[in-house]
Design a protein around this nucleic acid. Structure first.
Lengths: 352, 352
DNA sequence: CTTTTTTGCACAATCGATGGTGCAATTAAT
DNA sequence: ATTAATTGCACCATCGATTGTGCAAAAAAG
């Protein structure tokens, strides 16, 4: 009876089997059947049949017709660190809860690749795009705008669409204060013992640096220009910066403000080439949270960005296209050294 | 002239504008035009027009017609740890290189959710599915099989399709040996000072445990049953196991074989509740690599699973459906303490 | 027992791209 | 100058679901 069981059943198959027209089958299965005044009994019949034949709707056909795919895109710079991977995890949970399907891609912080990635996603008729940590959010905006695609910026702000980002200035202040206060009153930090490494000339780095400087000036009385060492977002350039500093100064600073966990990995690389004693009295503040990072042999104070809060806010705002673009700040949390926070993993059932 | 510029141009638009038939336009733009004996000049004309109007093909329509979407799926248990996030990163790179689009989803180690996730991906007519770390790979296989979808298991093996997994037995042996050899000859480890925590009753855990026991018996002469403490793959159950042990024994074992970085996070949670001295002479081996984990205050020996190797092998094998299902083992690498390996992040350009 | 209203569903066009088929016009062969 | 072969492209059905429209049959109103 059934044709090749390898081919999925379609509404036409169900139509043939039941003698009911394809349009009615469709209406029943997509829930619009009441509006179309289909008899309850007819609906039941079709639903049974659909179940029996394991019918699932072909989303390509559905999407073609309705020009909505049920796909929601998230564009990330990279997957492979705790900040972005928890972003992906949280995003996915939200999307699936709305009955849609997440499609997460990375674009390597390259403006051209960002635009091409967006184009590519658009060719799949995605319904919405979350642009996270883009180097050129406004470039991506143009592409989305041209296709009439709803979109929102996360992590790094743009000027053409709403943005939801970490409160980098306040976060930078808080972290800097925590670093300074970590030193005892009888042996306090002095201005040229506290350096900021990492980041580049983007909104997040600028704001964090501004917070860093403001607090440094206020609490330590001075803020030498040289205490800011932007390195880009790469472990390797950060490593080189640490090496260079170390060779010049003969030691690391007593205290480091590291701009991201990616840059922190640069410190790890530096560490692997130097004996443990090099870090005996080091204090690190890192703008990102990584559970293992929190337990290194020296005190590591971390800022956990509120990923859940950012994603939630972004979902609220993505519908909002009437009001002029605005930047929404989400406060990050200070995480003291040796702290293991719970995360998305804790949502899973504990099966042994 | 142009209609709503918010709507993407279609082959019909280009057809109207050029006076050339849609089928010819299509042939030119999808590359089959030589086979269809289209004049070079006609092709040029259409390509110019396509460029001018920023034409991109509608993948839904294309997919509907050809029943191939260009989407390649990866199903993960979770995103949020370095092993799986590097899996996602590596997978994406391979897929994009083949001109396809990655679609990564997580399924929480829940057999039902795994099958439903697969169904959902299938409804998007994905071309291939990589099933990574699935609790019930054979269940997912059934779903794929019914839809005629090519698929392959990674990380945890199934019996119905090819599997590419870490060489858990050899890895387990190597790691156990490394732990034991980390202790000096004048104060060697004794059998009941080395415990294995984490994992559950899955293929990976069983093989690692087998390697652990074999080496332990060979090098230490005995292997008490109690030295294996499966906890499932959750930070919290692992934490509880450490707490329980600690309360009973008054201390942690001198050496730990931890089954995964997720379980290692359970140790972090335990650590946050105990003073630093508790871990003064601890040696840890962890079956997974995390750069920050490698630099904890005690020696941490890690096994890095060869994600790149596994993904590469999986892409080779997924085409191979004639031969009976086989398990392909990929050797992991031993990573000594205080080692910062490079990873996918290093592929990015270093922009400051 | 008509006329009007409501119910229940079928028909057919549509979304955009693809590929088999057919048919002029051009070129080559005889 | 015919016939045969080749070139260049148009036509049309198709993939599967959606939706506006139309039309019988059943029910309600008169």
């Amino acid at each position: 009876m059934k044709k090749d069981s390898r081919k999925k059943a379609t509404i036409y198959d169900l139509s043939m089997l039941s003698g009911i027209s394809p349009s009615t089958v469709s209406a029943v299965l997509n829930g619009t059947w009441r509006k179309r005044r289909i008899k309850e009994s007819t609906a039941d019949l079709i639903r049974d049949l659909a179940e029996k034949h394991q019918y699932t709707t072909n989303r390509q056909a559905q999407g073609l017709r309705s020009s909505r795919s049920g796909l929601v895109g998230l564009m990330l710079p990279v997957y492979d660190n705790r900040y972005f991977s928890s972003m992906a995890q949280t995003f996915e949970a939200h999307v699936r809860q709305r009955g849609q399907c997440p499609i997460v891609v990375s674009s390597s912080r390259d403006p051209r690749e960002e635009r091409e990635t967006a184009e590519n996603l658009i060719s799949y008729s995605i319904d919405e795009l979350f642009i996270c940590g883009a180097t050129d959010p406004d470039g991506v905006h143009q592409v989305c705008e041209a296709a009439g695609l709803k979109h929102i910026n996360i992590d790094l702000p743009g000027t053409k669409a709403h943005s939801v980002i970490s409160d980098n200035y306040e976060g930078g202040r808080t972290l800097t204060e925590a670093i300074i206060h970590h030193f005892p009153a009888d042996d306090p930090l002095v201005p040229d013992e506290l350096f900021l490494f990492g980041g580049r000339n983007d909104h997040a780095s600028r704001e964090r640096i501004r917070g860093f400087r403001d607090v440094k000036r206020a609490l330590l009385g001075a803020d030498p220009e040289a205490s800011i060492q932007p390195t880009g977002y790469s472990p390797n350039t950060a490593r080189i910066a640490f090496e260079t500093f170390f060779e010049k100064a003969g030691r690391l600073p007593r205290a480091l403000f590291i701009n991201s966990s990616i840059n922190f990995e640069g410190l790890l690389r530096f560490m692997s080439a130097h004996p443990h004693e090099t870090f005996a009295d080091l204090v690190v503040g890192c703008y990102d949270y990584d559970p293992f990072g929190s337990f290194l042999p020296f005190p590591v104070i971390m800022m956990r960005q509120d990923v859940e809060g950012m994603i939630t806010k972004a979902f609220e705002l993505i519908e909002e296209t009437r009001t002029p673009p605005k930047i929404h700040l989400i406060r990050p949390d200070l995480v003291p050294p040796r702290t293991a926070l719970t995360g998305p993993l804790d949502g899973l059932k504990d099966i042994v």
